[in-house]
Structures are given as C-alpha cells and as structure tokens.
Amino acid sequence: MTDRLPHPLRSDALDNRDRILDAARALFATEGLKVPMREIARHAGVGPATLYRRFPTKQMLATEAFADEMRACRAIVDEGLAHPDPWRGFRLVIEKTCELHARSRGFTEAFMATFPNAIDFVAERAYALNSIAELAHRAKDAGHLRPDFVLDDLILMLMANRGIQTTSEAARVAASRRFAALVIQAFQASPQHSPLPPVARLAPAAPREAG
C-alpha cells in the first residue's frame, strides 16, 4: 500500500476559497451571522454546492474567516516589528490595525457572541501585546514615542476606533484613517502636525445662521 499525500488546492479552488471568505467577512460584518449561506455563495459568485463542499457548516465558515482575521492582525504586528524605523513600524501597526477593524466591525463581536469557544485567541492576543510592547520600547528609545505611553493607551484607542458609527464601510474606513492619524500625533514625543487624511462626514452640516 502507498501512502497518499494531501494534494494542494488548485488555483481555482484557492480563488473560490478566498472569494467565499471575503464575502463571508463582509456580510457577517454588516448583517451578522444570521445571513443565509446561499446569500454568501451568491455574493462570492460561487454555487451553493461549492460553498458547502468547502465549508459544510456556517460555524466552520465563520471560524475560518475569523482565523484569517487573526492571521491578518499577526501579519500587521510582524510587519511593524520588522521595520528598521521603530516609530514608523509603530505607526504602521496603528494605521493598519485601525483600518482592519473598521472593515470588519461587527464581525468580531458577532463571532465571539455566537461561537465563544470556537477559537482560543488568548495566545494570539498575548503575542500581539508583547510584540507591540517591544516595538513601543524601541520607539521610546529612539525618542519618537512619548515616554509616558503605556499599552493601555493603545487598547483604549482600539476600543474607541471600534465605536465609530457610520452609514457605510467607506465612511467608516475614512473616519478610522483620520482617527488613527490624530492618535499617532497624540502619541508622538514631539508632535509634527503633518496633514491629516480627508474628513469623514459623520454628522449633518450645521444650519447656517439667518443673516
């Protein structure tokens, strides 16, 4: 008897997987985990049979989508750590993490509420916090990060970023980019007021006073 090695997915199968996961994350973020599987298949441009062949249950699909989200977070942190300039690396982590959270707002909360024991993310969270603490220490030593910065400040910033409420994802991402730029200036040891990203209109324009 010969042992059969698992075959890697063909490129079309990988494309289908990526499209399904992208569609699932987008719909889970906007409509919650109650969105029908057939709607996810339609949004991904694949047939229901293809979806169920890759992900037989919604929990399997949501768990894989969430695992991809965690891998994206780790990749951002690793990219920041690898940057030769610790301040630029620190800024990169803030900017990209804020945008990632803005695009997936609602998905994390829905996943944790629906499948609280599906993934143990304690180790991932500890890795991210330890890595950012190291990056922050290097940025302080370089004289760019204010000396009184603590990790709780970053957690507070991420909590605030998750609270951005808009009518569309595009507006939420725009608001998150501007918020991240403001936070980075607040964290800088000697703020240099570089131009901010475009304003995201979150409220109706104030009425003009009668002349």
Rank of each mutant, 00 (worst) to 15 (best):
F121C: 05
A170P: 13
V46K: 05
M159F: 02
T63I: 07
T2G: 05
K58W: 08
A174E: 12
Q59R: 15
L135G: 10
R178E: 06
D15R: 01
E39L: 03
P8H: 10
Q165C: 04
G163I: 02
A102W: 01
I20S: 13
L92A: 14
A181C: 02
N161C: 10
R172A: 14
A171Y: 03
E31N: 10
E99H: 04
F115N: 13
A171H: 08
A160L: 10
A41L: 04
S11L: 03
F111A: 03
I184S: 09
Q188H: 09
A205Y: 03
S190N: 13
T30K: 06
F90C: 09
Q188E: 15
R177M: 00
A41S: 13
T166M: 06
P56R: 14
E69K: 09
R71W: 03
D15V: 01
G45Q: 10
D148C: 11
V173Y: 05
L51E: 09
R103S: 14
F115S: 10
C73Y: 07
A133G: 11
H83P: 12
L151Y: 12
T50M: 13
R105L: 11
K34G: 15
R105A: 15
Q188Y: 04
L92S: 14
D120V: 08
M157Y: 01
A67W: 12
V35G: 11
G163T: 05
G89L: 05
R178T: 04
A189M: 08
L5Q: 07
G89V: 00
E124D: 15
L51S: 11
R88H: 14
L81F: 01
N161V: 06
E99M: 00
Q185W: 11
E95K: 13
